[in-house]
């Protein structure tokens, strides 16, 4: 079946099987490999993207479900030639990553979090609860939580 998706602001079309996962379409057909597949069982959050502005797990959506929808992946967060998005910068500055595998999903969840808590206090406890759907197996969460807190502040500062 033919689908069309707006991905990072660009309209893309492709021929998929009904059983093709959205993450497979993004990685293998569109070549956007920043979105990772970790557990492939909707637990780890490495495949987190935004669909119509909401964070979702691309390993637990069919590509067909994204037909006509607006998708943002990690590649769409900042221009390819830089500079980095303030949230990406904050991960770099606060030791928010080590191996980096979970990082694209962490950043997509972080951005959704900042959007959802606009005008409210995104404190440490809230960040930790909001990261329920994202697993890190190497850096540990302290740096990630610090990075999100700093990134949220930088974004609110109009950066």
């Amino acid at each position: 079946m033919q689908i069309s998706v707006t991905i990072n602001g660009k309209l893309e079309s492709g021929d998929v099987e009904p059983r093709t996962l959205l993450v497979e379409f993004i990685r293998y057909q569109l070549g956007l490999t920043g979105t990772h597949v970790g557990c492939d069982t909707s637990q780890c959050g490495a495949c987190t993207i935004h669909m119509n502005g909401k964070s979702v797990k691309a390993c637990t959506l069919l590509a067909a479900q994204a037909d006509g929808q607006d998708i943002q992946t990690i590649e769409g967060v900042a221009p390819a030639e830089g500079p980095l998005h303030p949230m990406q910068e904050a991960f770099r500055d606060n030791h928010g990553l080590q191996c980096g595998f979970c990082t694209p999903g962490m950043i997509m969840s972080a951005l959704a979090m900042v959007e959802r808590y606009k005008g409210e206090d995104l404190d440490e406890q809230t960040i930790r609860e909001e990261l329920e759907g994202n697993l890190c197996r190497c850096t540990g969460y302290h740096g990630i939580v610090k990075a999100i807190s700093a990134g949220a502040k930088a974004m609110q500062g109009g950066a």
């Binding site: 909707s42 909401k54 979702v56 797990k57 637990t60 759907g133």
Partner: peptide, 9 residues
Amino acid sequence: IGDPQVRNR
């Protein structure tokens, strides 16, 4: 229920 991504779907 679940986590934020699951609650969005």
